[in-house]
Amino acid sequence: MPTRRDFIKIGSTSVAGLVAAQSLPSPPKAGGAGAPRYPVVPVAALKAIGPGATLAFAYPDAESPAVLLRLREPAANGVGPGRDIVAYSTLCTHKGCPVSFKPERKMLICPCHWSTFDPAKAGALIIGQASTQLPQIQLRVTDGVVEAVGVSGLIYGRHTNVA
């Protein structure tokens, strides 16, 4: 079991690693001409993500705060052996305020106008005033490392997720 100290460490290394990852050539994502090309960014080692883990990172670039969660149940589009690891943009799609994960509520809550999102259901709006789901960061596991590879849904404040 990883300790809390490990998460902090992962958090800091992943942000540092992120910058490096962006400069690396990434394989083009399937999706045809004109489809946005998302970078492949390693987020954390699978074995370091314990049940209930919450890990801040950024994707697809440093200006896009995101959170990786290991829930205590299988989740829509979850990765890992338990299909319970998911990641979301943390900018509320209503007005761009930062959402935060409340483990005891199992939901992401926006403090501005109280939109709430379900991380186990692909970021579905539980209730609130956003008119889209919370953008879900698409994940995959490569050689024991959870990588961010794309985004489903437009991130607040942008007209395209990647230029």
Partner: peptide, 17 residues
């Protein structure tokens, strides 16, 4: 200015708009 992300409470066009 969409050359960088808009700040919170900005004039953002969501895909639902």
């Amino acid at each position: 200015d969409y050359t960088k992300p808009l700040p919170p409470l900005g004039d953002w066009i969501s895909t639902a708009m």
